[in-house]
Design a protein around this nucleic acid. Structure first.
Lengths: 189, 189, 189, 189
DNA sequence: CATGAATGAGCGTTCATTCAT
DNA sequence: TATGAATGAACGCTCATTCAT
């Protein structure tokens, strides 16, 4: 990885750390610069604006998450096992990445959130969507709209990751398994 | 209700409307004043600061919600019916109050959110908590920590209310019933 | 004149002084605030933006100039005397107001200058235009387009006022009379 | 012309084009670099600073103009014809070079404009000045100070060239002749 | 109680200039 | 010579908060 990519990545990482702690409003560009160890001006060499930086970070996180999900498919397994496995990956992913989950919660409730970007990152989740659709066709899952399924799984995961990070809750491996079971019960037929 | 309370209430209502639309960052105190039909200065007679106004609004909403929940208890019913009824009230409450649910989502992810206030508003939910505890003792509900149950019910409700308000989803009465069923399946033994 | 108008006027005057010395680029809003003896923020209470402040100042100066010109008409005089009189007023006006003439020169060559505002302030000059038109109809003046006449009179006046202010030239009353004669010779039939 | 001079000239040309369109304030050094097809850093190899670049461009234009004027002298003609010829050259020069005239108008009203540079470029105009002086001695021209004569001829030319370029006026050959006549009438005895 | 003009720190962003390569 | 990433001071502007009236 060359210098240029290092600096770009440093800015994105600093942004992630600060936003998850202080929110969008509480994170000044000058703070990002300081945290990343660069000057204030150079951020605008890599990103057009604060908004563009946020959008880029969102895409980055969603892309990583999508890749992880796609890699975890085991087509040899029966659909029920596949779906439970995906569910577990999703929940564990955010629980082990409190910064990312805090950022996503902020982002999706902010004016930055737009249909265009949603459509763009949506492509990373086509295999996942298809899997859930097959689950509904084969009567393994309830016939709920995709956003509802999304809420009953991923939104629950990010919310719990936040509570864990904030100290309202301690997520042990055992408890994580129980949560996976609960989510599965919510969406299964 | 006298004049003083009218003005206080007008400020709180204006704040709710603006925050749910524009977020904390997008809502200037001068906008609140205009929306409420009062001068900018007088807000500081009723509230110590912008933060205090937000905290007060949070308490107000949580108090209302708590009252509604407490009023809906029907002790004559068996516990299972009681819990399902509460579940339905919780979900319907936020789905029919998109402003409140938008505000809560913003607030709980912001730096305003603190343990002290959580503890304070927690008192309104003691009967509810007790009911869930009995459900767990009687083996009707899974033995999950309170914040997890909270996430699987109220957080799901606020998230879906938001998606409904944003147009990503249309919540019919039928779909609401299905969501209630899903939440019940998630938490029941 | 009340306090509010005093402060508005103080800001406009400070702007005029600074722009005529330093140009648009060289005049920061913070300098205007300091020069006017007010805080930086309050300027935005009276004017929407730096651009709007400049536009307002331009309108202000053009309005004053137009009033002066209109008041100097003496309909009892023959047209030739009237036109020479107007010419003298125009030239003297800017020569005695180097700040205004410096501002106008800056403004008319800047991106602020727009057809809409030109049209708006143009109304103050209808009697003047009409007078020149009659001069052309009566074969007293050359049949030149209005912008050319404008250049041969007002633009010459502002340019000379600038050179006087910059010390490249000393404008005595005698010299001013000679300049009036020269402009008259340029436009007369 | 070698590479070095090519690059220097490219930077000066790019600057002329951009300044005439966007003004000093609207022309960033990075824009000059892009327009000239060079890197931002190299400009500082050829010019000490942005100010020095502007000064150099001013000298360049004034030198060209001076050369043109000096070459157009026809000593065989009577003085009156010579002066009228020079007048025509001056006016036509700027009218056919709107970029240069736009730049000059910006420059002469800016903080860049200084007596030292004026003195320096003044040398290119000695033959011209001498010619006007002879005109005054021979009672062909009015006995006006040099800056006034300058304003009544060159400043009029640049102002009209600007109005032509901005579309406020259309300068036909006929009209240009009329303007030359008007300027002549202004300065002749 | 109530107003809204006033403050000033802080924001996102730009850009002339430098310097490691 | 030449590049363009990097710097950081300065800009226009916002807004929570105060205070004379």
């Amino acid at each position: 990885m060359d210098r240029v990519e290092d600096k770009r990545a440093a800015i994105l990482n600093a942004t992630l750390r600060l936003i998850s702690q202080n929110g969008f409003h509480g994170t000044a560009m000058s703070m990002v610069a300081k945290e990343a160890g660069v000057s204030a001006g150079i951020i605008y060499h890599y990103f057009d604006s604060k908004d563009a930086l946020m959008d880029e970070l969102y895409r980055h996180i969603k892309r990583n998450f999508g890749q992880m999900i796609n890699e975890s498919f085991d087509q040899a397994q029966p659909l029920k096992i596949q779906i439970r496995e995906i569910l577990g990956q999703m929940i564990r992913y955010y629980i082990h990445r409190p910064l990312e989950s805090a950022f996503l919660e902020q982002y999706t409730r902010s004016p930055y959130f737009s249909s265009e970007i949603e459509e763009e990152v949506g492509q990373y989740y086509l295999p996942l969507l298809e899997c859930f659709q097959r689950g509904q066709q084969e009567m393994i899952l309830k016939n709920l709209p995709a956003p509802v399924v999304h809420t009953l799984t991923m939104d629950v995961a990010t919310a719990l990751a936040q509570k864990h990070a904030a100290g309202f809750l301690t997520l042990t491996d055992d408890l994580i398994e129980q949560i996976i079971d609960a989510c599965w019960e919510a969406i299964r037929q």
